[in-house]
Design a protein around this nucleic acid. Structure first.
Length: 820
DNA sequence: ATAGGGTTAG
């Protein structure tokens, strides 16, 4: 029967020689055909059973081969066979082949048209399906029947199309078919036309489970959970029992409404009524328990499943990924592959997110490569966004940016992800730039996520004016009272030195979660108002808000900025004994900072040695910083040795150590550290300060003379220096870290970036108006002293935020009381 | 050979 092959030609034959694999498949189908044909084609009286061939096709190529075979066998023109082919291609996901086959059929009946219609719907080509229905209605070839309408009702994307189709249904008299009516009800509910839906529903002469479910799921898809539940109650009052469809519709609602009890009761119901082993029900249960953070229950449901499909595997993988256990998520992915289940787009979304959490560089490339090979990045934004997010979480911001730029279609979330990516990698100005580009896209409407990504970027560079403009926009849409947006605003005002504004906003946002509390506690902390932070913490406890690990980081660093050693110990104790939170490295770092800054260097060192965790760079770095403040070169050397064992790449620490040596005049030590750092290819982070004027951020680098007004700035600085000298200012050369002559030292001090920014502020703003400065590094002690006096002679408030905290200078004193 | 209502997402 392989005689069939030479005649296997025509437009369906592939142009090039089929691959070995394809040929194998071709032969196997041909062989089956041959077997059948022995008593089939040769014996004209018997029909070949093509059923088995249709059922054996699992890939488009196989279907094409079968199609070719059918042409050769002269069967393809049978309307029956041709319609089956339309369906086969549709099931395999290739609508264009369905359509091609459809067009080649000369005389089509309602079956054929209906099949093509559902081919579109099944593959998500909703717009085409509605157009196709119009085509069908305007042809005289066939008349639609009640199989025609349900799929297209499911497809229509707006209520206008829905109404149009409803008219046709009424005209043709199919309105009271149960399936058609259920589809109508569902469609109207989806678009929120509950009155119409309800009318059809109550007028129905006969209602089956499908109708009830159509109403309930219609409400759910419209986001109306409360209505959905009330229909459910109504249904139960009428004595109708929930089936597996009802249960799997309602379980996600329980998760959405955070109603664990109801969810568990429905789980019990499912067990009692034997719905437990329905794949949809089990999958919905896994997802629900995952959303409640109850991985144990999710796991039990998964383990008890007899049959698992792709969604089951995706659900358990995402359950672990979303609950912070990416390692287990990956293990399940491995098991899934061992079970021969092929991953889909959603699997890869979870994997990308898992990689983002583990920081696994190697797997990030695998995930990206896999997605590229499958061409999924072109098909769906979601996976593209997930990859962008993955790269930015790994800090590979260039790759993130490349993927982002290559996205064919970008939605709000793509933009938000990119803005957040830059912001969280410390690249606030790039984040702002991307946000500006986004605003130029007319079809992108910012949402809550947009504000949550851009506001921290503004806070980071101190762009309070732009931040306030955003506040206005947020206010217009009522999102300023959203916990997350509200907290970002609190943080913005706090970090931009407007504590009063931060406080009044704080009182407006809902305060039942720890999120806004953490922000306001931290804001008072960096302003040196440690006592206020502690007071807020007490209020928080009084209001019954449960503190989390972030709360204690904010509190401990607040204590540290204000030198509240005893209170810090108290917090450290409360955290463990009363809140049951195990201290993390961050908490230990804060404690070392607190003790060290207060001058208890020995205690800090012993504290580190008694830690149950292996100290990381931030812990040793805190000790090193304390040694710099208190001029302890000996312990500093020890701390730096431990420090470079765990992190030898951070320039900041080399600078600190060399500063310690410079401070005590050990210039050979300075040179040693510098050449060591240079040998590792590390360059000192240049210091800069910025000031926001007229919605623009101006940046000054230390010693920079390229500013258009630099002459005026230096002249102003000379005048200021002369004035403050008359008030008793003596330059403190211990902050000059170069081994140079005295007059050179004075020049170095006066051209520190913060002084340039302050002088610029003084000559560019009206007298007595406050000046707000940002500095990327810590303010040096000499500048601190000088700024105090400048605030006095110019009668201005000068607010300087450095990498560590706020300094509020007024009338010759600083809010930090020289403790910084 | 065709039909309604169901589970996973950045």
């Amino acid at each position: 029967m392989f005689r069939l092959l030479p005649t296997y030609k025509g437009r369906h034959l592939p142009k090039s020689l089929p691959s070995f694999r394809t040929r194998l498949e071709l032969y196997s189908i041909t062989a089956t055909c041959a077997q059948l044909s022995c008593n089939g084609i040769e014996n004209e009286n018997k029909e070949i059973d093509f059923e088995i061939l249709f059922n054996s096709c699992t890939k488009t190529q196989q279907a094409k081969n079968l199609h070719a075979l059918l042409i050769v066998a002269g069967k393809a023109h049978s309307i029956f066979i041709a319609t089956r082919l339309v369906n086969l291609y549709a099931h395999l996901g290739d609508v264009s082949l369905s359509r091609q086959t459809f067009s080649q059929i000369r005389e089509k009946d309602a079956y054929t048209w209906n099949s093509m219609l559902s081919a579109y719907v099944r593959n998500g080509h909703f717009h085409e399906s509605v157009k196709f229905l119009d085509e069908m209605l305007s042809t005289s070839e066939v008349r639609p029947d009640f199989y025609t309408f349900p799929p297209v009702l499911k497809a229509c994307g707006n209520v206008i199309d829905g109404r149009r189709i409803h008219c046709w249904i009424s005209k043709l008299g199919f309105e009271w078919d149960v399936f058609v009516a259920a589809s109508l009800v569902h469609m109207y509910c989806r678009f929120g036309s509950f009155a119409v839906a309800h009318k059809i529903f109550t007028d129905m002469p006969f209602r089956d489970m499908g109708c009830w479910n159509a109403v309930i799921s219609g409400f759910c898809q419209h986001g109306n959970a409360v209505e959905a539940l009330s229909v459910l109650d109504e249904m139960r009052l009428e004595g109708v029992k929930m089936d597996s469809v009802t249960v799997s519709t309602i379980l996600p609602i329980c998760a959405q409404m955070d109603d664990m009890l109801r969810g568990m009761l429905i789980h019990l119901y499912a067990i009692k009524h034997g719905l437990e082993f329905d794949v949809f029900v089990s999958n919905a249960l896994i997802n629900m328990y995952a959303k409640f953070g109850n991985l144990g229950h999710a796991q039990v449901v998964f383990d008890h499943m007899v049959l698992r499909d792709l969604v089951s595997w995706n659900s358990i993988i995402s359950a672990y990924e979303q609950n912070g256990d990416p390692i287990t998520a990956f293990q399940f992915f491995g098991r899934m592959q061992l079970n021969g289940v092929q991953p889909d787009l959603l699997t890869l979304v979870s994997l990308a997110s898992s990689v983002g959490q583990t920081g696994d560089f190697h797997n990030s490339r695998s995930v990206h490569g896999f997605v590229l090979r499958k061409c999924w990045i072109m098909e769906d934004v979601v996976i593209g966004n997930a990859v962008v997010d993955m790269y930015s979480k790994l800090g590979i911001i260039d790759s993130a940016c490349n993927v982002f730029e290559d996205l064919q279609f970008k939605d709000v979330i793509s933009w938000n992800t990119m803005v957040t990516g830059y912001a969280q990698n410390g690249l606030a100005s790039e984040a702002i730039e991307v946000y500006c580009m986004m605003q130029k896209c007319k079809d992108i409407i910012p949402n809550q996520g947009t504000w949550v990504s851009i506001l921290p970027a503004y806070a980071h560079v101190g762009a309070v004016q732009q931040g306030m403009k955003t506040h206005g926009r947020v206010f217009k849409v009522g999102l300023h009272l959203d916990v997350f947006v509200g907290t970002c605003l609190v943080d913005l005002y706090g970090k931009c030195g407007r504590l009063n504004d931060a406080m009044s906003l704080f009182y407006e946002v809902p305060r039942t979660s720890s999120v806004p509390w953490n922000a306001i506690i931290s804001c008072h902390g960096i302003h040196g108002h440690g006592e206020t932070s502690l007071q807020l913490f007490r209020y928080m406890l009084d209001e019954g808000v449960e503190p989390d690990h972030v709360t204690f980081v904010s509190l401990l660093s607040a204590c540290s900025h204000s030198g509240l050693v005893d209170q810090g110990w108290w917090c450290f104790h409360v955290m463990q004994e009363e809140c049951g939170i195990k201290p993390s490295l961050k908490h230990y770092g804060c404690m070392v900072d607190l003790l060290g800054r207060a001058g208890n260097l020995e205690i800090a060192y012993n504290f580190i040695r008694s830690m149950p965790l292996k100290p990381d760079a931030s812990v040793w770095g805190a000790l090193l910083g304390a040694c710099r403040i208190h001029g302890n070169a000996e312990l500093g050397k020890l701390a730096s040795e431990r420090l470079f064992e765990v992190d030898s790449e951070n320039v900041g620490y080399y600078v600190l150590l060399s500063n310690i040596y410079a401070n005590v005049g050990k210039w050979e030590g300075v040179n040693e550290v510098r050449s060591f750092a240079r040998g590792r290819g590390l360059k000192k982070t240049p210091g800069w300060s910025s000031i926001e004027l007229n919605n623009r951020i101006e940046v000054f680098y230390t010693g920079n003379q390229s500013h258009p007004q630099h002459e005026a700035i230096y002249m102003e600085l000379e005048i200021l220096t002369a004035k403050i000298k008359s008030l008793g200012y003596i330059p403190d050369y211990s902050f000059v870290l170069q081994d140079v002559e005295e007059d050179e030292k004075e020049h170095i001090l006066t051209s520190h970036s913060e002084r340039l920014a302050i002088a610029y502020g003084i000559i560019s703003t009206p007298p007595k108006s406050p000046i707000r400065i940002f500095k990327n590094l810590r303010v040096c002690g000499d500048c601190h002293n000088a700024t105090k006096l400048i605030s006095k002679i110019t009668d201005r408030e000068i607010i300087v935020r450095d990498s560590n905290r706020f300094h509020h200078f007024k009338d010759g004193i600083c809010s930090c009381g020289d403790y910084w």
